[in-house]
């Protein structure tokens, strides 16, 4: 079961890298980076997974079989950072589009 998740992680990273390297549309490149980010987040969350576990809240708990808290904290932080980076990249894409009138990495010429 857990191996399947790791395979999915690798597959997502490869898809993301493919999009970044071979797609010419800038938005697709941003999407590719987002896919890599999601893959890494999936990897982190699955590291903290325990079967049949409960949320790691210690007050008034019945069982101590809890999911690990640290990977979840890491994932939350990483999601926030990814959001910031995506917003920044998309705003750059808007600027580039205004400047060149195209999102294609090969067709870009300065607007006269």
């Amino acid at each position: 079961m857990i191996d399947l998740i790791f395979l999915a992680v690798i597959a997502l990273i490869v898809i993301g890298l493919y999009a970044v390297m071979f797609k010419r549309n800038l938005i697709k490149i941003v999407v590719g980076i987002n896919i890599i980010g999601s893959a890494v987040n999936l990897f982190l969350v699955s590291l903290g997974y325990r079967s049949e576990s409960i949320a790691p809240i210690f007050t008034g708990t019945e069982s101590l079989n809890m999911a690990l808290a640290t990977p979840q904290a890491l994932t939350l932080t990483s999601i926030v950072i990814n959001l910031a980076v995506t917003a920044l990249m998309l705003s750059l894409v808007i600027m580039i589009y205004r400047h060149y009138g195209s999102l294609d990495t090969l067709k870009r010429r300065l607007k006269e």
């Binding site: 990273i13 890298l17 970044v20 800038l26 490149i29 980076i33 890599i36 980010g37 890494v40 990897f43 982190l44 590291l47 640290t70 990977p71 890491l74 990483s78 950072i81 980076v85 920044l88 990249m89 750059l92 894409v93 600027m95 580039i96 400047h99 870009r108 300065l110």
Partner: peptide, 30 residues
């Protein structure tokens, strides 16, 4: 002129780098 293009390039490469780092960190954590 063209500073957006350079920034986009920098940002794409450095965010991929940071995600690879996070992946490696995840392996250590695992």
């Amino acid at each position: 002129e063209e500073s957006f293009e350079a920034t986009f390039k920098y940002l794409v490469l450095s965010s991929i780098g940071a995600l690879l780092l996070l992946f490696g960190v995840g392996m250590f954590y695992g």
